[in-house]
Every structure is written in C-alpha cells, then in structure tokens.
Amino acid sequence: MIPFPASDFIVGGVFLLAVATTAAGALIAALSTRIIRSVAGLALCSIGLAGLFYFLGSPFLALMEILIYVGAVCVTIVFAIMLAEPDEPAPEARSSRTVLWGGLALAVSALIFWSLWRLGAQGHWTPPAARVTDGSVKAIGISLLTTYSMAFELISLLLLVAIMGALVVARSGRAKA
C-alpha cells in the first residue's frame, strides 16, 4: 500500500499548528485588555487543545472539548459579559506598586514554567508493558457504566445542583434592581 504523498509532513504540520493555536489562544486569553477578545482567545485555545487530544489518541475527548468549551463555556461567558460589561479597567499610572505586582506575577509564572519544563523534559516515561483496553469510545462507555458508574451518577447530580444553584443565585438580586 502506497502512503499518501508527504503524509508525514501534513500530520506533523497539523500537530505544530495545534500546538501554536493552543499557545497563542492562551496568550490572547491572558493578556488582552478587552474581555471579549479574551473569551475569543479561550475559544481558540480550546480548539487547539481539541486537536492535541486527537493526537493523544482520543477523538471522543476532542469532540467533547469543542462541544463543552467552545459551545457551552465560552457562550455562557459571552452572555455574562453582555449582562455585566466587565471590561478591563484602563491601565493605572505606572507606579512602583503596579510594577512590583506585575514583576511578581511574571516571576511566579516563569518559575513554575521553568521548573515544570525541567521536570517534564528530564523524566523517563516508560510505556506500559501491555494495554488492557484499546481506549475506544466503546471501551469508555463500558467502563463508565461498570467501574466508574458511581462517579458518573455523582457528576450528573453535581450538574443538577449546579444548575439549580446558578438559577437561585442569579435570581436572588433581581427584586432590588
């Protein structure tokens, strides 16, 4: 069987594109001043992450990532922005305090990034001797309803409580306004 011409380059290029999308989306989400651009950065980051999940052997989670994050979480945040207009306030005058806090934030995150980089690059991750299942959607469904059935039921209960709690909390202030 003759492989598709340059398929290695295409697959590698798509992977690098997914990595770049994730990193760029995260940077946009954390650094932009308009909050709506920040949400768009989060959506971009989620799409890149879905591509990475595909490369990690889980098309199911790639689909779920796009459904839940781009389709539900980002849309909900956009609704909250429309209701509350929480734009980032204009940058303050560059006093010594703001510079100190910015430097502290940069130092903390750079330290975490550097140390985790070292840890991840040095570790010898040995592949398992044998795989029990193939990790397909069928295997996921079987173990969701056998081994993890208790956690599955608990998370449905948690989602129900969260929906009702969100309704109650968002309703409570309406009489005063």
Binding site: A29, A30, S109, I112
Partner: peptide, 26 residues
C-alpha cells in the same frame, strides 16, 4: 508536558494580573 506547563504558567499569570472577575475566571 511543556505545553501543559506553559498553559498553567499563563493561567497563573492571568489570575494574578487580571482586575475583573470574568478575566480571573477565564
């Protein structure tokens, strides 16, 4: 793993730097 560390670092940076609640949530 390095990309995950990058995401964590960017998230913590944003959590410290953001001055609105929605920004911190993102």
């Amino acid at each position: 793993l390095i990309l995950a560390a990058f995401l964590l670092a960017v998230g913590i940076f944003g959590l410290i730097r953001r001055r609105t609640l929605v920004g911190m949530l993102i």
